[in-house]
Structure formats: structure tokens, C-alpha cells
Design a protein around this nucleic acid. Structure first.
Lengths: 278, 278
DNA sequence: GTGCTGCTATGTCAAATGACAGGGTTGGTT
DNA sequence: AACCAACCCTGTCATTTGACATAGCAGCAC
């Protein structure tokens, strides 16, 4: 292994490090707010989503008053930088994002991906620093809330508070699954598990209706998610393609036999009830 | 690697598998309830803990009425089995536990450790199956709550609801850190990071006052936490001892220079405010 | 004592994974 | 066209890590 124990050799191409630093700069996202005064929640794109449990009308009205506006980010832009305490919290309205954590020496671990309906910034809401960065993987639109008013939500809307806890607990469960991957599965199993995870979330959130998730994930990102080197990621991906287990290109993921892929990756089929959202 | 890609070779000593199966049987924990009618919360052992934020008196009274009793488990006993939906939720009053997740073929991943003040069973509270098992690493005493009444807590006590979300978010942050370990750190860094994590939690919860955590962790458990083989865990542990970075025996963990260990493991020193508890 | 069990330690070899170096493709820009 | 930036791919070799086999040692029951 080249990460020699403690001398912190460069570890990533300078190009990558460079781009990371650039991203760090346009972190603020300050001026870009687009308040969507018009039809806030009545036209919420999440209302059509099969996989989401819709809030009752009165709660929806409350959210409409609570929410602040919309915001858009382009693919590659950073929504949160690590170790900041931002002003806004978000719900994903459309698009996919990822959260990642950076080590001082440049190594980066992608923690998880966020799909429509997911809530962003819970750690920030609780007066803590963000332990990770959040970056858009596609063009995204986010529903924004003001952090300071977060406690109003908890105090006034036990239903939403419950939902928020629900989301946090299920996010935790997803991280557990990723931990199992990194700790116990070998490279091919990990990659299969990740593919199944992504496609399943795509199906559940309605953005991969026919079982094909259109999402551009570079092999470098896969490597950073799975804790593998870029080269080994490439080879493993090719191996899975050769077997016919997954059909994963730069821009889309397709799994011919998802049950077979689950079995291969040793994923126990826990069925999730439909997710709430805020 | 011996985990050859998909043939699921035995992978663990038969003795270990055997003991796991045994543990699976005494899972119910049904009849062992010890209702502590006397002085429930006034004498709460957590009240003395420096690292915990104490609830205000009225909330404490509410908890006293909400809580159900005490329960004790001996080292090695299982509190929750995986994929069950238990009747009780717990707060750790004393002792240390671990949560782990089992794969069908016997591989096991330890997810995290739980110290006094931690809340157990949030997933269960939200009507989901437990995705993991919970096992006592020492003799423990737990404060029990009835799962069905969980929504009362959310509805009636926004403060506690907030605290619960706080705990969930910070548990998530801990899992993120473990993910970074498994994904980006090599064996020695992982082990140092784990040692620092455990000792720090021990200090914060007052059970390692002099910086020495008395807790018996076998090398097999370390291996299952860090995603390493038992043999490699042994060798790595010896290497760390040789360097003088950690002094980790079967029954205790001591870190001569915790700052050095942090630097070695590349842990960024995020300072946590004091944790709430319920 | 003898056996047994759980844990730690070591030696040897094999497999998984990473490092390094280089080439190829695509797409955008000037 | 020439250049450049991302990204994907391949070959070769080094390192990390795992598998297997075995031994030692403490505790404990009988």
C-alpha cells in the first residue's frame, strides 16, 4: 500500500487536490438565493413521488410558512463546506448530492448520497459544525429553511420532529450498511452493494423509473466511496461488467438482475416503509 | 485475501460462529425486567456525569413518569438481536455496549460502541426492525422505556425530542468518522483512531477519569470493528505498542500521548459540546 | 494433575489491493 | 489544427493484508 504509514505522501493527483481547493472557495453560496415567492408547496415536486409519504394538509401549510425559498446548484458546486456553520438547511427537491469528509492530507471519503426528499444540514441545525462537505452531483434544486427557526419546528410540529428523527435514524442505518461494506466486503461485493444501493434509492425516489439510474459518477468518486484505489476500482468495475452483474458507465447505472446483485453483495433485503419528508 | 469473491468460505473459527449462535438464543431478555420502584430519577447515576447536560427539573420529572424501570445485563449478553422489533428502548445508565451487524455468511461488523447516556433503540422506536444487534461488553444497567409510548415523548416534550435528534445526529457523525477510518486509513491509523475514540468517550462519560479506560476488548472484537483479520490486528496492535503510541491490553486502554495519537491517526479535533440524555 | 476454553502470539505463504507510469478517448477552447 | 482538461484503461511491480497452521498461556472445572 502506498499510503505509507505516517509520512503522508501526496496520495492524489495534484489536479484533484487543486480542484478541491477551488471548490472550497465558492462555498459560501451566499448571494444565490432565489426566493420562489409564487407557489411554494402546492407545486412541490415531491408531492408526486410514490416513495414518499405526503404530509397532511395542515402540516403542509405550516411547512409552506416555515420554508424560506428555493436554491439551485449546478453539478460540482458545493452546498456546504466542511467545518462551517451555515445559515440554511435544505430539503432536496430534485437532483442528487453527495456528502464527503476530507482528511488533512487530502484523502477523501464519500459518506453517502442524497436523493430527493432527503434533509440536509441536521448537524448544522443542532448547533454543531458540519462534519462533512455537501456537493451537488447533478444540477439540483433545494428547498431552503432558516437555521435559526429550526427549534420552532421541533416545538410546534411534533409530527415533523418525529419525521426528522425518522430520517436521521434511517440515514444512520444507511451508514451502517456502508460500514459493513467497507469493513467486511471485498472490492467486488462493495461495488455491487453500492450499485444496488444507488439504483434502489433512484427507484424509490422516482428518478430511475425503469430501473436505470441516470447519474454521472466517475470512477474516482466510486473509489472515494468504497475506499479503493482508482486503478483497482477500474479493474473491479470491469470485472463486474464482465460477469454481467452491473452495467455501470460514467453516466448511468443499470442492474440486469437486481436480486442476483443483492445476493452477490450479501445484502439482506430489509424493506423500508415510505420515507417522510419536510 | 481469503474471502474469495463469492464462495463464502467459512471465514471464522467454528468456535466463534458457535458462540454467536448461542448468543442468538438468549436474545429475548423478556423475564428479566427489574422495575426499580424506589428512587427512579432522583438517584440517576447519570446526574453526576460531567460530560452530560442535565435536563431541567420539570423535564426530569416528566422522564421519571415516562420511564418504566431498570434492567441489567451481564457482559456478553445480548440486549437486542438483529432483525427483531423489541418492546423496550433504553438509555445506558452504566457500562459499555456495542452494536454489530451480521452477514448471512457469518461475517460480522461492529458498528459502534455505546457509553453511559447513550440511547438504544431509536430504529426500533420508529417502527423499523433493528438493523443490528446490541450486546453488553461489560455488566450494564439500562433505563427502560416502553416503545409504544415513544410518540408521547415526541408530542409532549419538544425539548426531549430535540435532544433525541441531537443524539441521532451525533451518532451519525461518529459513524462518519468510522467510515473514514475504514475507507481511508490503513490498519495502524485505524487502530489508533479507535483507541482515541474509545478513550475519549470514556473520559467524556466519566468512566475513564485518569485517561485509562478499563474495558475488556478482545483482539477479535477489534478486528471485527476495523475490518481486519484477527492475525493482522494482532500484529498491528503489537506495532503500535512497540512505537509506544497506545498501551492496549485485553482489559484496558491507555494512550500515553493522546495528541500524538490523534495526529498519527489524522483525527481533526472537533470539540463536542456536552451531550444531552433522556 | 488433566482437560478444556478463550485469548494472544508467530511463521509461512498466498491473495487482494495500491503505486507508478503511460496511453487512449472525448469534448471544449482558442 | 493545436492544445488542454477530464476521464477511462492497461501493464508491471511493491505493499498490505488475509489464510492457515501451530504454539503458548491463563483461567476454570472436575
Amino acid at each position: 500500500m502506498g499510503r505509507d504509514d505516517n509520512d503522508s505522501s501526496p496520495q492524489m493527483g495534484t489536479a484533484l487536490v487543486h480542484s478541491m481547493l477551488e471548490q472550497r472557495q465558492d462555498q459560501a453560496a451566499g448571494g444565490r438565493l432565489v426566493v420562489n415567492g409564487g407557489q411554494p408547496c402546492r407545486a412541490c415536486p415531491l408531492a408526486d413521488c410514490e416513495g414518499l409519504r405526503q404530509p397532511p394538509p395542515d402540516v403542509r401549510d405550516w411547512i409552506a410558512a416555515f420554508r424560506h425559498g428555493d436554491m439551485r446548484f449546478a453539478r460540482g458546486e458545493q452546498v456546504y463546506a466542511q467545518a462551517t456553520r451555515p445559515r440554511f438547511l435544505y430539503t432536496v427537491l430534485s437532483g442528487v448530492l453527495m456528502r464527503s469528509r476530507l482528511l488533512e492530507d487530502g484523502r477523501r471519503q464519500i459518506i453517502n448520497f442524497m436523493f430527493p426528499g432527503d434533509f440536509i444540514g441536521l448537524q448544522a441545525a443542532l448547533d454543531a459544525e458540519m462534519g462533512h462537505a455537501v456537493e451537488a452531483m447533478t444540477n439540483v434544486t433545494l428547498c431552503t429553511f432558516v437555521r435559526e427557526r429550526f427549534f420552532d419546528l421541533v416545538a410546534q410540529q411534533p409530527r415533523l420532529s418525529f419525521d426528522l428523527t425518522w430520517l436521521a435514524a434511517h440515514e444512520e442505518a444507511a451508514l451502517e450498511e456502508h460500514l459493513v461494506s467497507l469493513g467486511q466486503r471485498n472490492a467486488r461485493e462493495r461495488m455491487a452493494a453500492l450499485a444496488v444501493f444507488l439504483v434502489q434509492r433512484g427507484i424509490d425516489t422516482g428518478i430511475a423509473p425503469d430501473g436505470v439510474l441516470t447519474l454521472t459518477v466517475t470512477q474516482g468518486q466510486i473509489a472515494e466511496m468504497l475506499g479503493l484505489s482508482l486503478v483497482h476500482t477500474n479493474r473491479t468495475l470491469q470485472a463486474l461488467r464482465r460477469i454481467g452483474l452491473v452495467d455501470w458507465t460514467l453516466t448511468s447505472i443499470r442492474i440486469p438482475d437486481i436480486a442476483a446483485a443483492r445476493a452477490f453483495a450479501k445484502i439482506d433485503g430489509s424493506v423500508f416503509s415510505s420515507r417522510p419528508y419536510i
